[in-house]
């Protein structure tokens, strides 16, 4: 096993005095592909914000043995204001890291990286378009390009399969499999059925965290880990989601 890039040790954190996550431990290694699953309000987004440095731990320790890695982040598309007047090129270039955050005017090498990224993502022809004119899939591609332009070692994706069609979803997962050869990926989702064939391991987050060292979530495994699954009609296709549950009963 290679050296971890992020280590969480017994962390409690949240937004108010009452912690959303308690006693969370997790190590993320190079080339890991972890599906972060859990019910709404279970703390998936809180875990992601903790790793991104947007939240501080109340207790416990977060460490980066080789220094904080370049991290790409794809927020939920519902957080993005599509009516905001910003072009695809401006959106993607906002992910450029190696420039002074106070005066982030990209230099020649950054502009080259931007054009390379736009070409790779097939967005070159849409570069000058405002994001309001993009389809759901194109916007998701632009947001993923923003996360990738910095050549991250850790990629964090929050529900990337929402507001996209099935074809794009398949393309996205193929792209992620390729990217995983070069970086660790944390994929946050509430839908076990869709992501379990894609990821390598699963972290079940519901107030605390239980790490499943495989992507096989059989009924047997779920019973052992006390992670009940509901099949619910959510959207056009019924799919499997984690029901709110308590790991303390494990």
């Amino acid at each position: 096993m290679n050296k971890p890039i992020v280590i969480l040790e017994n962390i409690s954190t949240g937004y108010t005095a009452k912690p959303v996550l308690e006693g969370v431990s997790l190590s993320v290694h190079q080339n890991d592909f972890i599906g972060v699953l859990g019910p709404n309000g279970g703390g998936k987004t809180t875990l992601m914000k903790l790793i991104l440095g947007l939240l501080k731990p109340f207790s416990g320790k977060i460490s980066f043995p080789s220094g904080r890695p370049p991290t790409g982040y794809l927020p939920q598309v519902s957080q993005i204001d599509k009516s905001f007047p910003i072009t695809v090129k401006e959106l993607v270039s906002s992910g450029l890291k190696d420039i002074n955050p106070w005066f982030p005017h990209p230099g020649i090498s950054q502009r080259k990286a931007l054009h390379r990224m736009l070409d790779e993502a097939g967005l070159a022809e849409l570069a000058s378009r405002p994001i309001g004119e993009l389809s759901g899939g194109q916007l998701q591609k632009a947001l993923l390009s923003r996360a990738l332009i910095n050549k991250p070692r850790l990629l964090i994706l929050d529900e990337p399969n929402t507001h996209v069609d099935k074809q794009f979803e398949r393309d996205l997962y193929n792209w992620l499999q390729e990217l995983n050869k070069e970086m660790a990926i944390l994929l946050v989702s509430h839908d076990i059925g869709t992501i379990s064939p894609i990821v390598k391991t699963i972290a079940c987050v519901n107030g605390n965290l239980h790490y499943h060292p495989s992507n096989q979530l059989s009924e047997e495994v779920l019973r052992v880990y006390n992670c009940p699954v509901d099949v619910i009609a959510h959207g056009p296709v019924p799919h499997r989601v984690l029901k709110s549950h308590d790991h303390d009963k494990d």
């Binding site: 927020p75 957080q79 910003i86 906002s94 992910g95 955050p101 923003r146």
Partner: peptide
């Protein structure tokens, strides 16, 4: 546009 992402970018 996206203050959270901007914060992540420093």
């Amino acid at each position: 546009f996206d203050p959270e992402f901007a914060r992540v970018m420093g």
